[in-house]
Design a protein around this nucleic acid. Structure first.
Length: 605
RNA sequence: GCCGACGUAGCUCAGUGGUAGAGCAGCGGUUUCGUAAACCGCUGGCCGGGAGUUCGAAUCUCCCCGUCGGCUCCA
């Protein structure tokens, strides 16, 4: 689903003048009213909350009478009632009421959510807008369509539970989502787009291409199958080489630590509910690591450090476990076990800016390889923060400055309260096939952990100083990164990542000279470091093998038959699956070179 | 965790109280074919798990597990 903005203010206040043209937002907002009108008709006594337009559609939140709950089968009834109201051409009647009259009105109608909105309005507001659509009366600024007959191309999609005002301590209401468009054709196009997105779904493609598997005994913990491991290792190998080049040194640390470590780091107080805990006896509890940082601190503290050594950069590819709530898991994009291209950099405060820039440079470099579109998000001090406010503000100011320099004003979003408990962060955000936003890479400033672990360096004047730590990951979680890549490329991974890079298919599988020649070509390709498969399955027609290779997203397919053997000219026919070029004559020598350079340069598909 | 939906063969799905089905995949044959599916045959199921209702349950009820869409939470 798209991001939803529940803007209570849009539901209240004075009506806005209708613009000259009908916009999708107005249409959808009106469709939300229409739906609420239908629900109030069908289920008298329903309490209604808010119902704004959102990307591609609208929703409305309800509490049904008698603790009743909507189920999917109710959507058809509601939709039918909506269509009936459309036929009746019910006007959207606008009215401006003094605040006290509006309050009395909703009091009479027993609409507690509306009363709550009115009571929450600023003291300066003395009159508010009210819209009527048949029996449905709503506190609303509008604008709306003149009457219900202008609404037609809509469809109710699903029902969801939502916490009132987005706070899980509040009661849960039910939200009905719908989509609405100017025309039926646009509605159909939208539904077709959803179907297309489903074809790109990494969970489907991951199963079809045998990349990974989820077992019921390990929810949220992917098994990487042989094909998936190739992708995973290629990404890791590349990242390892790049980081080595940039002065990172790799460490490998325990997956489980005794709880004392987590007490020192603050995870015990701030992150325990997200950790897998292992009680080993009455006195002792271990916790699987949700992050690598505490162990990096342990390694740093093994000896004294001079200011001359900084930055000290420790990369750690350790396996992390986080106990995510069951309802939040989502294929490879939200898991309980994952690996990051993680690193912790110990620096002086003066080095923050230069080192952050170096990190963002890696981001640019890596993401450029995949033509990925990403955006930055600054996460600031959360409610449950560690340390003191002044340090936080200093760190936030540093990151803000860096973003302004490197993303430009407006090139990033600020998400208040979304920082980590130990420091503010810059997140790199990407969208999946259906437009949901996911965090991949991250750059986090940390003044807290080095202090808690007593990390030190000796400054030029001989005094002990506490270093600052940058936590950073470029891919972020490899699992998530692979999931996003699959959706981005619809399974057609760049050549350097493809499990099988080139498949050779014999036209006749009963001709020894054809099979011998195919083996020779395969040998030349694999000698160049390429991952090659020969489809030897007997009895199957060449066309079926081609189709099968296409479905497995093998980037290059070469068909070889007796005519190629007879010609003895080194020329074969190549199918470039991703560019959908059907046949392409090429000498084997040229083919080897073409694939080798494409893989070596890591060109995107 | 919460609201809703779903769980039938390796995959995609049909089957709504009366003997578990289809296509693809797999296996065995026949076919040797020049760029997206040759033909014939055969295997294959604790109908997610448990309890209940019933003469009888894939089908109805309850509990649990998992998955999906949201909410909340987050890489």
């Amino acid at each position: 689903m798209p991001d939803e903005i529940v803007d209570d203010a849009s539901e209240a206040g004075l009506p806005l003048d209708a613009p000259a043209a009908l916009t999708l937002d107005i249409l959808r907002h009106s469709a939300a009213h229409l739906m609420a009108a239908a629900v109030v008709d069908l289920y008298p006594g329903t309490k209604y909350d808010v119902g704004p337009p959102i990307e591609d559609g609208f929703f409305y939140n309800f509490r049904l009478p008698d603790a009743r709950h909507f189920s999917d089968s109710d959507l058809g009834d509601i939709e039918a009632r909506m269509r009936k109201l459309v036929k009746q051409r019910i006007p959207f009647e606008r009215e401006v009421l003094p605040r006290s009259d509006a309050r009395a009105l909703f009091e009479r109608m027993q609409q507690p959510f509306k009363l709550d909105i009115i009571d929450g309005l600023d003291d300066t507001v003395d009159s508010v807008g009210v819209y009527r659509t048949g029996e449905f009366v709503n506190l609303c600024r509008g604008p709306h369509v003149p009457d219900t007959s202008l609404l037609g191309a809509f469809k109710l999609q699903r029902v969801a539970g939502v916490y009132w005002r987005g706070d899980e301590r509040n009661e849960q209401l039910q939200r009905v989502y719908g989509t609405a468009w100017f025309t039926e054709a646009e509605l159909d196009a939208y539904l077709a787009r959803l179907a297309e997105a489903e074809r790109r779904d990494h969970r489907r493609i991951g199963r079809e291409l045998e990349l990974f598997h989820f077992d019921a005994t390990a929810p949220g913990m992917a098994y990487l199958l042989p094909n998936g491991v190739i992708v995973f290792n290629q990404l890791i190998d590349y990242s390892r080489a790049e980081h080595r080049r940039r002065g990172y040194r790799e460490i490998s640390t325990p997956v489980v630590n005794e709880k004392h470590l987590w007490e020192i780091s603050g995870h015990w107080d701030h992150y325990r509910e997200n950790m897998f805990l292992i009680p080993v006896d009455e006195q002792t509890t271990y916790g699987t690591k949700p992050m690598n940082c505490p162990n990096a601190m342990v390694v740093y503290n093994l000896r004294r450090h001079s200011y001359r050594e900084l930055p000290v950069r420790y990369a750690d590819w350790g396996v992390l476990h986080r106990f995510e709530r069951s309802g939040t898991l989502h294929g490879m994009l939200r898991v309980r076990k994952f690996q990051q291209d993680d690193a912790h950099i110990f620096i002086t405060e003066e080095q923050i800016e230069a080192e952050s820039v170096r990190v963002l440079d890696i981001v640019r470099h890596f993401y450029g390889l995949f033509d990925l579109k990403y955006s930055f998000r600054l996460g600031t001090r959360p409610d449950d923060f560690m340390g003191d406010v002044e340090t936080w503000e200093r760190a936030e100011a540093s990151l803000l400055h860096i973003l302004e320099e490197h993303a430009g004003p407006g090139g990033f979003a600020v998400d208040a309260g979304e920082g980590s408990f130990y420091g503010p962060k810059i997140d790199i955000m990407m969208e999946d096939a259906i437009g949901r936003s996911w965090q991949l890479g991250t750059v986090q400033l940390d003044f807290q952990l080095p202090r808690r672990f007593g990390c030190l360096y000796i400054d030029s004047d001989g005094a002990e100083q506490t270093p600052v730590v940058i936590h950073r990951a470029i891919y972020g979680s490899l699992e998530r990164f692979i999931g996003v890549l699959i959706e981005h490329f619809a399974g057609h991974l760049p050549l350097w990542l493809a499990p099988v890079q080139c498949e050779l298919i014999p036209v006749q599988d009963d001709k020894p000279e054809v099979l011998a020649y195919i083996d020779e070509v395969a040998g030349r390709l694999s000698a160049a470091g390429l991952r090659v498969d020969v489809n030897h399955r007997p009895g199957e027609r060449m066309q079926a093998k081609v189709r099968d290779a296409e479905l497995r997203r093998v980037p290059y397919v070469v068909v070889i038959g007796k005519r190629d053997v007879e010609r003895q000219d080194d020329v074969v026919r190549v199918r470039d699956v991703r560019r959908e070029s059907r046949e392409d004559d090429s000498t084997v020598a040229a083919l080897v070179e073409r694939l080798r350079s494409e893989a070596e340069e890591r060109r995107p598909a």
